[in-house]
Computed example of a mutant assay.
Amino acid sequence: MEECRKTLCTFSGLAMVKKGIKVNEKGIILVAVIKDVAKLAGVSVGTVSKYLNTPELLREDKRAAVEDAIQKLNYKPNLFARNLRVQDSKTIAVIAQEIRNPFHAALFNTIRKEAMKYNYSVVLYSLNDINGNFDTLFETLPIHYFSGVISCYFHDMEQSIDFAKRHSKVPMVIMTNSERYFDEYDSEKIVHADFTQGIQKVCEYLISLGNTRIAYIGCRTKDQLRDPKLKGFMLTMEKHRLEPHSIVRLEKEYTMQTGYESAEQILRSGQLPDAILSDTDVMSIGVLNCLRNHGIQVPDDIMLASFDNIEQAEYCNPRLTTLNVPIEAMSVKAVELLVAQMENRECKNTGNAFELELIIRETTKNR
């Protein structure tokens, strides 16, 4: 038995041994657990548990026996273990891609502040830390410890939906990048923005400015066949009967470094595109630096447009044309829906679809 705390017995060590409770040679027991209380009181573990949760339901003699055993053993209920069973931890698990990207940082920070308004705390899980494997996510702290879960893992929605289905008894809200998931999961538990339509809006704008040779950069995701942004780009190019200048999707994280390397790969093709469409702002900042280092002017030589509208997009030089994802508003809605589930309150899921707005800045211009 773990020796993290010791307590003196108020009666003999021999009596402890007879009851099956371990003591040391001085008659000192180690930290008592619920089984020790049950043995000393002569009742089942279930009876002790009932005493701890609903003592009024016990007969007087059993309640007295349990009270006496708890006092003699100086038993302290393990609140953490109890929370694992009854889901009253007042803690929300947030599953995201990672925290370094300002997009995800804003998402997590908004969820954290909103949860605090309802007296819930938040634990963030970064799937990058475990190579995107949901199955190992809750090995240390079981999922049933949490009062609820918000999954905002946009890069592999199929896995997010499957995870939610396998844990259907856990209050959960999923933030998605397409309304098509309404057919696969309860629409009352989904907050979404259509990333396919969003990237189409950006691509249409680039084409309207006279750009016909457009390069696309992103990162490879596990949901390759259903990547909503790449799909939107290809649909728009096909609509206008245009061929992409190039498509670069490295098997790396969404970082400025990845954007820089992606731009270098485009430049090595020997023919400059009219424009580059990046599927995240953080990569676009890397693209800007790469083009500047090669003496290429944005937007005069190459236009650049992006997706997310993180704070840095407005303050880089030149300022970035991008698509605004209202991640703060989506996060507030996700918390609202989850709290309603956790507290068994009705909350109609109205306004769960969020529009994506094109923000035109200095990296694009009329030619």
Score class of each variant (00 low, 15 high):
133 N>Q: 15
164 A>Y: 07
146 F>I: 08
123 V>H: 09
148 G>C: 11
136 T>N: 14
119 N>G: 00
165 K>T: 02
128 N>R: 04
180 R>K: 13
154 F>W: 05
132 G>R: 02
174 I>Q: 02
115 A>Q: 02
149 V>E: 10
179 E>K: 11
155 H>T: 11
120 Y>N: 05
119 N>C: 01
169 K>H: 11
118 Y>V: 00
105 A>F: 11
150 I>W: 06
167 H>N: 15
143 I>Q: 12
145 Y>D: 01
155 H>N: 07
159 Q>G: 10
122 V>T: 14
147 S>K: 09
158 E>G: 13
133 N>Y: 11
176 T>G: 07
108 F>K: 00
164 A>T: 07
138 F>Y: 03
130 I>G: 03
154 F>I: 05
132 G>C: 07
184 E>A: 13
121 S>W: 01
142 P>V: 04
122 V>S: 09
136 T>Q: 13
151 S>A: 13
152 C>A: 15
162 D>R: 14
149 V>I: 15
141 L>E: 04
185 Y>A: 08
180 R>Y: 12
165 K>N: 07
147 S>Q: 09
145 Y>M: 07
173 V>H: 09
160 S>L: 11
148 G>Q: 08
105 A>T: 11
136 T>A: 13
140 T>L: 13
143 I>S: 05
186 D>A: 06
116 M>H: 07
163 F>E: 03
159 Q>H: 11
113 K>C: 02
168 S>A: 14
126 S>I: 00
142 P>K: 03
123 V>A: 02
157 M>K: 04
186 D>H: 12
104 H>E: 05
158 E>C: 03
105 A>R: 07
113 K>E: 11
157 M>S: 08
132 G>T: 07
148 G>Y: 08
121 S>G: 12
183 D>A: 13
170 V>G: 00
184 E>T: 06
104 H>T: 01
134 F>G: 03
169 K>A: 12
177 N>Y: 03
184 E>W: 10
137 L>G: 09
153 Y>L: 08
122 V>P: 08
102 P>F: 02
137 L>Q: 09
159 Q>K: 15
122 V>A: 06
164 A>M: 12
100 R>K: 12
107 L>G: 07
182 F>D: 13
161 I>F: 11
160 S>A: 15
165 K>G: 02
